[in-house]
Design a protein around this nucleic acid. Structure first.
Length: 758
DNA sequence: GGATTGTGTATTTTT
DNA sequence: TACACAATCC
């Protein structure tokens, strides 16, 4: 590996007019620390920015500043964001600051940038420039093939487990060749390395990459081609990284290589908001920055512009329980505001009812639903809220629900396009070979696979080989030849017409659209709608390749639905966002902190859960409500639950308890005694001193197990209306559950109280 | 090739 | 418990 001499920046740049805001109006309104970060001279810079301290603003302003002051040209900049959304916003903000659109920047997520780089040099790692980016589903299918090919039973050695091992290795920058023994695990009697290698080989044959490869191949490339690395090192005079606390080892190595020449790297992050260790993120990267980049400047942003004093105080008090942190003292000049409310509820239904009521009250006061968020630990928790909100007719949006690109019909359509674009994509080919049915059954596919493996060809090529022989039955042969010709024709089409038209033609001529048109299933019309939406989405793209790249990388949902709606999402999804009013339900041991996380990660995981709680709390500007339920259904069994230990850690001076009188809470009495070393936690002591500790006696009651029956009697065949899914027809009635074929939303099972006769 | 039955697992978070 | 998947039978 080449090592560049340690040197300072050449002095050929004009000394920028630092800090004089009359000459640099974009500095106006920034506090001294923010300004210091924006105008800091070349060299490694770490901006430790607490929640709500204007981190993104500083980063974008620094970028604009560097461009405006002539210290860098757009194409010399590499800027990394955590999500694609953040990338779009950053481009927008920089353009605003510059007063014109910026072009030529390398700006995006690690993966998007990795892909961009890899496309340029694909041949050097054994790929072609049009390689496919696989999603988890494809990966699992491929890994399953690998496991089976190794004569292992995928039931005892699950693809999911092997995928986890491989992803872990890739996150740490390990290829099959250099993965340390200690990190391989004992999968399949120590055959991880061999299986990993086989998987990588299969990927190359398929001309495909998984997410981890986008960076790993880059690292391999840089290692093997010092001249190419040197080119990029010279080119990228400025590197900017957002959310540095969530980078993994591979990303860190990638960055460090690229920053080697100019050592002009700005990283922004907050160790207290590191919440992605399960994806390989290493808090260590940010904690070690000053050792990794000697002479680094460190700027701390500690003035919070977002939250009230009580919210900030409560959040700071909580995070102070973590041991491994750099430590920051956030402060605000904002008013103290309302105390953080802690509400105890009977069960998850009452929790949802409570939040619903609070939101309605907010609405009655003239408040905006867009200012409200309900942030949950895990996706399944949204259900209770959705049901309640539908019942109340309360508009809401769920961020991060099932994704458009994961629907079966969309994946099928995309598989067609993938084969058109990249004939070696066997996974895509297998997906659609017999969809719609064209008599290519299991047996034929087996034959194709065997032929492909024996001759080292892709499935499409194997088809061609087989068609040239007379091994096949005439009918089958005709079918295959027809299919091959179709793909040839469609491929040729891509050179002449825009991608949208290609997609339309492919979907028509392949019979895929007809298949759904003829399908009598009630959700078929909805699927056809989705296909139309897909075709529509293609209009934005100039090439099929561009579209497929987008599909592979941009896993986020279609644009958030517009209008005034409350937001429902996971805590992870809420990173970087803020809302006036925030509800944090489900603060119960096992749910949050999540039991599985604790089982797997122990004390470290507990700290991460606490950081997650901190992230959630600091999303709130004016009002924050934490809730916990005394009872929760686990696998449909009622179980008493304990309030999260985090509740005991909130400083009593910033909180208040809302106890609902209507609800006896037997399990509550003495609950903190079971926690936190017998109730000796400081938070508990303070609460008790303040008379806030909940001490309610009561007796267990028989729990409700059924929803109230609907007032309407509904019968099979009846037309109904559902507040979320619209009009539909009843297919079946089972107790209080209905199966309904919705005109738009497909077939769903819903509770009868949510529907009304149309 | 499709329907039916049985079995095992699931609820963490996402680029 | 409920769903997804695989094996089995028609």
């Amino acid at each position: 590996m080449t090592s560049q001499p340690d040197m300072m920046m050449p002095a050929d740049l004009p000394a920028p007019a630092e800090a004089a805001s009359s000459e640099a109006p974009w500095l106006a309104g920034l506090n001294p620390e923010q300004q210091a970060a924006v105008v800091a001279p070349d060299g490694p810079l770490l901006v430790l920015a607490g929640a709500g301290t204007g981190k993104t603003r500083v980063l974008t302003t620094r970028l604009a500043h560097l461009l405006l002051s002539g210290r860098a040209r757009p194409w010399q900049v590499l800027a990394v964001t955590f999500t694609n959304k953040a990338a779009r916003e950053m481009i927008g903000r920089v353009s605003d600051l510059l007063g014109r659109s910026v072009e030529g920047l390398w700006l995006g997520t690690f993966h998007a940038l990795g892909a961009r780089l890899l496309r340029r040099h694909a041949e050097l790692v054994g790929l072609k420039a049009n390689f496919t980016i696989l999603d988890t589903d494809d990966q699992l299918r491929l890994i399953k093939q690998v496991i089976e090919a190794a004569d292992l039973d995928p039931r005892s050695w699950t693809p999911r487990a092997l995928l986890a091992i491989i992803e872990r290795l890739k996150d740490r920058g390990h290829t099959p060749g250099n993965a340390p023994e200690s990190e391989l695990g004992d999968f399949a009697f120590g055959r991880s390395r061999e299986l990993y290698a086989a998987y990588q080989e299969r990927l190359l044959t398929l001309n495909a990459c998984d997410f981890g490869d986008l960076l790993l191949h880059g690292l391999t490339l840089f290692g093997a081609q010092p001249d190419i690395l040197a080119d990029y090192q010279r080119r990228f005079r400025v590197l900017l990284v957002d959310e540095y606390q969530d980078t993994n080892v591979a990303q860190y190595l990638w960055l460090r290589l690229l920053a080697q020449a100019h050592k002009n790297l700005t990283c922004v992050g907050d160790d207290d908001q590191s919440i992605y260790s399960w994806r390989g993120a290493e808090v260590g990267n940010i904690l070690r920055f000053e050792q990794d980049f000697p002479g680094a400047r460190v700027v701390r942003l500690e003035r919070n512009y977002r939250s009230t004093g009580h919210i900030l105080g409560a959040a700071s008090g909580l995070i102070a329980h973590n041991r491994s942190r750099l430590g920051k003292t956030l402060w605000t000049e904002d008013e103290q505001g309302e105390r953080v409310r802690i509400a105890s509820l009977w069960d998850d239904e009452e929790e949802a009812r409570f939040v619903g009521e609070e939101i309605e009250a907010h609405q009655r006061r003239g408040g905006n639903l867009n200012d409200i968020a309900v942030l949950v630990r895990a996706g399944f928790q949204t259900r209770a809220f959705e049901e309640r909100f539908i019942n109340l007719g309360l508009p809401y949006r769920v961020i991060g629900g099932p994704r458009f690109y994961e629907r079966a019909e969309i994946r099928d359509a995309i598989a067609y396009l993938r084969v058109v674009h990249q004939p070696e994509d066997d996974l895509a080919f297998e997906r659609i070979a017999n969809v719609p049915k064209r008599g290519l059954g299991d047996a034929t596919l087996q034959l194709l696979r065997r032929t492909g493996r024996d001759t080292g060809q892709s499935l499409v090529a194997a088809c061609r080989t087989l068609c040239a022989t007379d091994e096949l039955r005439p009918k089958l042969r005709t079918t295959l030849i027809q299919l091959l010709q179709d793909f040839e024709r469609w491929r040729e089409l891509t050179t002449r017409v825009p991608p949208r038209e290609v997609a339309e033609t492919v979907l028509e001529e392949s019979g895929y659209v007809r298949m759904w048109q003829e399908d009598r299933a009630p959700d078929a019309p909805g699927r056809l709608e989705n296909l139309k939406e897909l075709v529509h989405a293609l209009e934005e793209f100039e090439s099929l390749g561009g579209f497929l790249e987008h599909v592979g990388l941009v896993m986020d949902n279609a644009a958030d639905p517009a209008g005034d709606m409350a937001t429902l999402m996971t805590l992870h999804g809420a990173k970087g966002l803020e809302f006036d009013t925030v509800f944090l339900p489900g603060w119960e041991e096992g749910v949050f902190p999540n039991q599985r996380a604790l089982d797997e990660g122990g004390a470290k995981a507990l700290e991460e859960e606490r950081r997650l709680a901190y992230v959630g709390m600091t999303r709130a500007r004016r009002q924050l409500t934490v809730c916990y339920a005394a009872n929760r259904r686990v696998y449909n069994q009622w179980a008493a639950s304990l309030p999260a230990r985090f509740i005991a850690e909130l400083p009593g001076g910033h909180t208040e308890f809302l106890m609902r009188q209507s609800v006896p809470e037997p399990q509550i009495s003495g609950w903190f005694d079971d926690l936190k070393a017998g109730g000796r936690g400081p938070g508990f002591q303070r609460m008790r001193a303040a008379g806030k500790a909940p001490l309610i006696e009561g007796q267990a009651r028989v729990l409700r197990s059924e929803l109230p029956r609907s007032a309407h009697r509904l019968e099979v065949g009846q037309r109904i209306f559902h507040e979320k899914f619209g009009y539909g027809r009843v297919l079946a009635v089972e107790g209080n559950k209905l199966e309904i074929a919705f005109d738009k939303a497909g077939t769903k099972k819903v509770i009868d109280s949510f529907v009304a006769p149309a």
